[in-house]
Design a protein around this nucleic acid. Structure first.
Lengths: 230, 230, 230, 230
DNA sequence: CATGAATGAGCTTTCATTCAT
DNA sequence: CATGAATGAAAGCTCATTCAT
């Protein structure tokens, strides 16, 4: 069932945490089974989209019965919301870690941009974005939260980082959130939107990412860098 | 039926050009009815997405019978493809017109960026993008063509414009397509993706667009402008 | 459109009889077009059956518009009835001709049986039977008339022939209609029903027909022949 | 729902065998419900034919929901195939039993022919034949199997029986399969085909069957009987 | 708790028929 | 008279959801 491809969701944790919840039998809701359902739903939904993925498909892919799904989730939409929350948390985890390491400004930005571009152009992230954007009209709160807590995560870390350097005098930025957005978009220029539309069928080669983010950092530091400090 | 909202598709041409086509009889498939169907489909699909919009809904909204739809289109997917083609052509029409007017470089970029940002952040365009991105996984060719002939249109005009200025010595750009993408993304920084995810429910205020594109143009010209020429 | 296969109906007469009906324009119903429709209907219906053949299919195959069919026929069922009448008359035409030629009894029966078996096991006749039998439950009068005027035709000629020989003393038959049926069935033994069920996909080879009807005639004359007269 | 008429399919077993299957739970697809669906399908299809019988009609007649039908069968055609298999097995069951009883040749043939003619001219068998023949053009394999395993069943038993008598010297037959077919057709002469076409609306009266099979047996034994042994 | 058979509303599509041209 | 666009009903089939086991 699992084709091994990267998917929206793949926790696939074993039902092993029995110890952390000794009285399992009497109180229902095995978290491992919940994760199993989410994993199956993630694979199916990332492949077919929310509407085209039937609960039947999800049950089959997850290896549970249809009824079980309704034990863990109130309905298809509820399952979907949970999936999107889980996916967002997992995919965008630790995106700012590179910024916390020591090192000169340009190197830090480069490390961060590398991880960012590589991650955001990956198949699982692109698929999650497609699914989320595809239903954003009907589920605007879900979409907003996805952006707020997901996409923003990257730029928020970056924002703090930039603030620090502004305070240190190495960067001169009037509108830090705008600058963070600009850095982010520059790093994705010609990559992310093409990926979303399937105009670029495969993730970009490292060389292409490298070229793009070097130019982005150059432009960014040229504009925001304090003269003689970078 | 027509709710008056901006939609994916709104040809809404009256069936009035009887004069321009005197031999109406025996000529098959009335193009006005085709447009009427596409308009209805555009409204419904932009509201609900491709999968959730039923042919029934579309027929009701378009004011035709379900059967009629199958006279004009081979099926739901065929109708959808025609809708996306039509929508793309209509929405992205004449996006580069501002660049062809005379005037200094910075003013031309500003005019262009204004139209671009205002248009791309408008509800109809955002909805069309959501729909298209939402099905890009299953219909990658359609998605790629949408990007190729739609999104690219803006940057292609911009590319030619930049080339001209490179030739004239007013800009120094090694990789013009990359620069075009960068300009495009900078103009949308903090706007377009937020709109897609419904994190920004309404189109941005003119002031916000203004602030964003001014910063974008500044950064762009600072980096690519020939010293002493801008 | 016409695949050249043998079909239920293939009059395919040219619209040439204009002379026999000089005032065509004012009184409607061109018999050639009627035949054209029946021919198309015959091809389609013999291939797909009455229910599965759509009026659309028939119109396309006949090369006329759907509306035209309703000028010549009151509806699909009326068209079907006309088709069955026409088909029956055409397919079973001149089935008794062999019996009217001169010659000894056994030779006449052999000639007759040859034509009968070859004709009744042919694709067009088998297909017409399948179609007719398939709807006999819902249209019993049509089925009865088909049998009465079609299948009976063969045995009626045979009946007269047998009567003659009974009168002449060459045959001794108490129940002539029964004897005619018996002769008929003996000639088809192991052939006709297998053909109907598609257990015998192709018409039987001449040798198989020959073997079958020789045995049939032998048995028939052994039983009904006047001793010393055959 | 069940009109009480004889039909294609009438298993009508009550869901009462709970005892014979104690572990009913968790064993999937209830065979009683499957039989119930087949019974309903048999009634509707024998009345209207395969194409004219809608899945809706079948569901209503069977007393199940449309969806349930698709739990037990892959589609309408699959249901139909199962119905034809089941019908064939049931209708033609134990057709040769009469031949296995002891008794003189002529009496055995008479008993067999009686059962055969009465059964084959009955409404359920005629209807099953009409349905099967009606779709034989489109489903030739199904038709061939129906003939192979159904119609043949009668003549195969008869064939063995004849072989025995040939070996015993009571019959002299060169081509036993042909002779079996001949016997079969002679017994149905003037009955079966008329029934198929609805030219004979009701099953033949016993007297008519009696007359027909007596003549058939007479002719058969006159031709194939060993002189002085019958 | 887990199951999957059962449901009926709803899906996309095709139908026989009509009628303005 | 011939056309084929238009129609509403109905086709085969799938859906999300429920519930007895």
């Amino acid at each position: 069932m699992n084709t091994g491809e990267p998917t929206l969701s793949a926790p696939s944790q074993e039902p092993s945490q029995a110890l952390s919840c000794p009285q399992r039998h009497a109180m229902g809701e095995d978290p491992a089974k919940r994760a199993q359902i989410l994993a199956g739903a993630g694979r199916v939904i990332s492949r077919m989209g929310y509407d085209a993925a039937s609960v039947n498909d999800i049950a089959r892919e997850a290896g549970v019965s249809k009824g079980t799904i309704y034990v863990y989730f109130a309905g298809k939409e509820d399952l979907f919301e949970a999936l999107m929350e889980e996916t967002r948390e997992r995919l965008f985890l630790a995106l700012g870690a590179e910024l916390e390491k020591p090192g000169p400004l340009r190197e830090r930005l480069f490390s961060y941009a590398s991880v960012l571009a590589q991650k955001l152009c990956s198949d699982p992230v692109i698929r999650a974005h497609r699914v989320m954007i595809g239903v954003a009209e009907r589920m605007p709160e879900l979409g907003a939260r996805f952006y707020e807590r997901g996409s923003t995560r990257g730029t928020r870390f970056l924002g703090s980082f930039l603030e620090t350097h502004v305070a240190a005098g190495t960067l001169i930025i009037a509108d830090v959130p705008l600058a963070a957005s600009q850095f982010f978009e520059l790093c994705m220029a010609g990559l992310f939107r093409r990926r979303l539309f399937a105009h670029m069928p495969e993730p970009p080669a490292p060389a292409e990412i490298d070229k793009t983010i070097r130019s982005a950092i150059d432009m960014f530091l040229t504009y925001y860098g304090a003269p003689g400090r970078t």
